Computed example of a mutant assay.
Amino acid sequence: MGGYHSAKILLKSIDYHDIMINYGIHHDVVSTLLKNELSELIALEPDCIIICCNSLHKYYDMIKVELNTSIPVMHAVELVAKHLNSIDQRSELLLATKFTMEDGFFAETLQQHNISVTLPDQGERERMDQIHAELMQNTVTQKSRDYFASLIKKYQSSGVVIWGCTEYPLVVDSTNSVLPIVNPICLQVSAAVNYALSI
């Protein structure tokens, strides 16, 4: 837009501890927490909403009807599906938290859009979970970077790699991935910017 323009942003930060300890165990607790937080945000009448956590999109899908709002949400998984279809990419490697990979909500949405999803095996998911725990404590090591580089190389026939975890860009980027990276955060931001400029 030129000049000195910047976006007006309402940021609502949630205590992640309350979410993390209930993932995959107490779905009702997480969905209720998200519903309450989003309801407060919706009351402030933003133009659109971004949920800055991939896993929380599972719970958004569970409560979106109850929210009863016309305010658009830049849905990470739907945006990934739309992007992959736009570039005619029908297969991908999904790297995410153990919960996201094993719960299936991310992969199932992509499969509904005729996109084939490859997941690492059980042992690899366990190792990724250990690295994720380190990242949550701000521990970023070369060993972790090397592990992801080798993992992606093993599955390079997948075509692209999807970041189903918002922490993984701390250890993987274009310098150590043999596959092109699709980052849902970037897709969400682009969608929000495009929407904001269109209204």
Score class of each variant (00 low, 15 high):
Phe106Trp: 04
Val171Lys: 03
Asn114Ser: 15
Ser91Trp: 02
Thr109Ala: 06
Ile185Lys: 12
Ile181Tyr: 09
Asn68Ile: 02
Ser116Gln: 14
Val65Asp: 05
Val77Ile: 15
Leu135Glu: 07
Val160Leu: 10
Asp173Met: 06
Asp121Phe: 08
Ser157Ile: 01
Ser150Tyr: 01
Ser86His: 08
Thr100Ser: 11
Phe106Arg: 00
Ile131Glu: 04
Pro184Lys: 10
Arg145Lys: 15
Gly164Arg: 04
Glu124Gly: 02
Phe99Lys: 02
Thr139Gly: 00
Ile181Cys: 12
Leu119Phe: 08
Leu79Ala: 12
Ser70Asn: 04
Glu66Val: 01
Leu135Pro: 03
Val171Gln: 03
Pro120Cys: 07
Arg145Gln: 12
Asn176Phe: 12
Asn183Gly: 08
Thr109Ser: 07
Glu66Gly: 01
Val117Cys: 05
Ile63Thr: 07
Ile185Leu: 14
Ser86Val: 08
Gln111Ala: 12
Ser157Tyr: 12
Lys82Ala: 09
Glu167Phe: 07
Thr109Arg: 08
Leu56Lys: 00
Leu56His: 00
Ser177Phe: 11
Thr109Met: 13
Asp146Val: 09
Leu110Gly: 06
Ile181Asp: 10
Ile71His: 00
Val182Lys: 03
Thr100Asp: 07
Ser174Arg: 13
Val171Ala: 03
Glu124Lys: 05
His83Tyr: 15
Glu108Ile: 02
Thr109Tyr: 09
Arg90Val: 00
Thr100Arg: 05
Thr139Ile: 15
Cys186Met: 13
Phe99Asn: 01
Glu134Lys: 09
Ser174Trp: 03
Ser70Pro: 00
Tyr60Gln: 06
Phe106Ser: 00
Trp163Leu: 15
Leu151Asn: 12
Gln156Phe: 04
Ile131Leu: 10
Thr100Trp: 04
Ser91His: 07
Leu151Val: 13
Met128Arg: 06
Gln89Ile: 06
Lys153Asn: 15
Lys98Pro: 00
Thr141Met: 05
